[in-house]
Computed example of a mutant assay.
Amino acid sequence: MGGGAVLVDGYDTLLLDLDGVVYLGRHAVPNAPQALHRAHDQGVRLAYVTNNASRTPGAIAAHLVELGVPATAGDVVTSAQAAARVVAERVEPGAKVLVVGGMGLRQAVRERGLTPVTTAWEKPVAVVQGIAPGLDYGLLSEGVLAVRQGAMFIASNADTTMPTGRGELPGNGAMIRVIVTATGVEPEVAGKPEPPLHRESIIRTGAVRPLVVGDRLDTDIEGATNAGVDSLLVLTGVATALDLLTASPEHRPTYVGEDLGALHEVYPEVRQGACGGWQATWSDGALRLEGQGARIDGLRAACDAAWAAAGEKALEAQAVQSVLDVLG
Rank of each mutant, 00 (worst) to 15 (best):
R166P: 06
R166F: 15
G167Q: 09
G167W: 09
G167Y: 12
E168H: 15
E168G: 00
L169S: 08
P170R: 10
G171K: 09
G171S: 08
N172M: 13
N172V: 10
A174C: 07
M175G: 03
I176L: 11
R177P: 06
V178W: 14
V178R: 12
V178K: 10
I179Q: 14
A182V: 12
A182M: 14
A182N: 13
A182I: 11
T183M: 13
G184R: 13
V185F: 01
V185W: 11
V185D: 02
V185Q: 10
E186N: 15
E186V: 15
P187R: 10
E188Y: 12
E188V: 15
E188C: 05
V189S: 04
G191A: 13
K192M: 00
K192Q: 00
P193K: 12
P193I: 12
E194I: 12
P195W: 14
P196M: 01
L197M: 15
L197I: 15
L197V: 11
H198G: 05
R199C: 00
R199F: 02
R199M: 00
E200L: 01
S201I: 04
S201Q: 03
S201P: 07
S201N: 04
S201G: 11
I202W: 00
I203G: 02
I203P: 00
I203V: 14
R204E: 01
T205F: 01
G206H: 03
G206W: 04
A207E: 04
V208G: 09
R209T: 04
L211Y: 06
L211R: 12
L211A: 05
V213C: 08
V213R: 07
G214W: 14
G214K: 08
D215M: 00
L217S: 00
L217D: 02
L217K: 09
L217H: 04
T219R: 03
D220G: 03
I221A: 14
E222Q: 09
E222F: 07
G223H: 12
A224S: 03
N226V: 15
G228E: 08
D230T: 14
L232A: 04
L232I: 12
L233F: 08
L235N: 04
T236M: 03
T236R: 06
G237Y: 02
V238Y: 02
V238T: 06
V238S: 03
V238I: 11
A239R: 12
T240S: 11
L242T: 05
L242E: 05
L242P: 03
D243T: 00
D243V: 00
L244G: 10
L245P: 09
L245E: 06
T246E: 05
A247Y: 07
A247L: 08
A247C: 01
A247R: 02
A247V: 06
S248D: 07
P249L: 07
P249W: 10
E250A: 15
E250Q: 14
H251V: 01
H251D: 00
R252K: 13
R252V: 11
R252I: 09
R252C: 15
R252T: 08
R252G: 07
P253N: 06
P253K: 06
P253L: 09
T254Y: 08
T254P: 15
Y255P: 11
V256C: 11
V256R: 13
V256Q: 07
G257K: 11
E258Q: 15
E258R: 15
G261N: 10
G261S: 13
